[in-house]
Design a binder for these strands. Structure first.
Lengths: 64, 64
DNA sequence: ACCTAAAGTAAAACACACTTTACATTAAGA
DNA sequence: TCTTAATGTAAAGTGTGTTTTACTTTAGGT
């Protein structure tokens, strides 16, 4: 799964730590997701989408 | 997280086993998700949404 | 060149997602 | 009522998601 987290974060001028705090997860979790180390859980994906006010499919995509 | 899997499955007249096969997961996984025992991974949520040709948010909702 | 914020990374620990096997319960048709 | 398909459930095992702690690397400002 690919994701646009880094771009969305840049658009808002947030650091990984900023985003982590808003999402109530650790900074390492954000880093790992951005680096494609693993995918977020579904609840976290929802939280991310809600924060950026977009739908999940516009952040995450099923491709390699 | 709530989900409409059971309803969607009923609309298509599929058993849990049918759906499991189409999604390439075990029947127990479908049962557990329907019963709210746990949420699917994000990749599985995508697969489910793709199968039913709807977006993730119309199947899963963030409520209690 | 130095300092600092931000990002990257890694290991250990814990919780959750998913599998297989196996058995119990429910529901509905004959 | 008997059978059988469908659903529910449980235990043990594996892999993934997330945390904490801690250290390294990168990049920008001065």
């Amino acid at each position: 799964m690919k994701n646009r987290l880094k771009v969305l974060r840049a658009e808002h001028d947030w650091t990984q730590a900023d985003l982590a705090e808003k999402l109530e997860v650790s900074r390492q979790t954000i880093n790992a997701i951005e680096k494609g180390k693993y995918d977020p859980s579904l609840p976290l994906a929802f939280k991310i989408a809600r924060l950026f006010a977009v739908n999940i499919e516009s952040i995450f995509s099923d491709e390699a």
